[in-house]
């Protein structure tokens, strides 16, 4: 590549100085196509369709190979084959669907309340001084306390029912939503605020046209962390006095040493986590299509 460039530069003018003999080819044409690559030099490279699946697929392939070659003891970790047959058994009896459904409902409820409260708090803290003084401190403190540590108190207050489970999940989600949305909201360029004042925007218009789109990138960072933390919260609450859900199913399997059932539960968690993150990414790409970034 390095020795191609000088050739391209000297090729043209050398012919031109002759003057009398017209060159066979136009002098500016023979630029080697290698010199001008289509790939951005400092970027991460061209995106592949479904490229994000390559990593997980390789992981499963390695697992399959290890258990098929007998390297993996089925008492330690069941092979993919037996996990799949266990999964189909669990589906046939309806046990998997019922547990998945109740888990999804818990995570969904917690996520919903967490997102709504996190965003409302971020907007309130970002747009008014009194809001910031009242809200920001307590949330920074809450951020330092893991939801797990709050569990004893929440059980004391709310019991061990569904309210407690949704609350634990929502608390974790709300904090990551708040932190990221608030950070992006307060760093909206002052020039845009000036513009909004110059254009006489009302407060509602300002929020809709400047604040919300300006803090949307932060909202999505928060949402991706929030979705992950909703699954983490789910796992925690489902292993405490639950009588249903994927976590309960796995906990029972542990009692009976059914490693294949545990794997089915883990795979279910993994699929949910991966699929929900992919969904958020897809929405993010659509909603932030105005952005030009390193990746895009």
């Amino acid at each position: 590549m390095t020795d191609l460039l000088p050739t391209a530069r000297t090729g043209g003018p050398a012919v031109l100085t002759k003057g009398s003999a017209p060159p066979a080819a136009p002098p500016q044409e023979p630029g080697p196509p290698v010199a001008r690559g289509t790939r951005r030099r400092l970027g991460p490279g061209r995106p592949l369709p479904f490229g994000r699946l390559i990593g997980p697929v390789l992981l499963i392939a390695a697992w399959w190979a290890a258990s098929a070659s007998g390297y993996l003891d089925p008492r330690i970790l069941s092979g993919p084959g037996s996990v799949i047959s266990t999964a189909s058994d669990l589906v046939a009896t309806g046990r998997l669907q019922d547990n998945v459904l109740i888990s999804l409902q818990r995570a969904g409820l917690g996520l919903f309340f967490g997102v709504v409260s996190g965003v409302v708090l971020a907007v309130a803290a970002g747009l008014s001084r009194s809001g910031e003084y009242l809200i920001d401190g307590p949330l920074q403190i809450k951020r330092a306390i893991p939801s797990l540590a709050m569990l004893p108190l929440l059980i004391l207050w709310l019991g061990i029912g569904e309210e407690m489970k949704a609350t634990v999940i929502a608390l974790g989600v709300a904090v990551s939503m708040y932190i990221n949305t608030f950070a992006f909201l307060t760093s909206i360029d002052n020039r845009y605020v000036e513009l909004a004042e110059g254009l006489d925007l009302s407060r509602a218009q300002f929020i809709r046209k400047v604040v919300v789109p300006g803090s949307l990138p932060g909202f999505f960072v928060g949402l991706r962390l929030g979705v992950t933390s909703s699954w983490v919260g789910l796992i925690v609450v489902e292993q405490i006095n639950a009588t249903s859900g994927i976590g309960y199913m796995m906990f029972q399997a542990q009692q009976y040493a059914q490693s294949d059932v545990i794997i089915v539960g883990l795979v279910a968690y993994g699929i949910f986590g991966f699929a929900s993150d992919a969904a958020v990414r897809a929405i993010e790409r659509k909603a932030l299509s105005w952005r030009r970034t390193l990746a895009g």
């Binding site: 020039r191 254009l199 218009q205 046209k209 949307l216 952005r291």
Partner: peptide, 24 residues
């Protein structure tokens, strides 16, 4: 009715051109 124009165009990057023009 006062309009302002700045050294930078100050178009909101998340609004299409027409929506920027009719903002507010």
């Amino acid at each position: 009715r006062v309009s302002l124009s700045f050294q930078d165009s100050r178009l909101l990057p998340w609004l299409r051109v027409l929506d920027n023009v009719i903002l507010g």
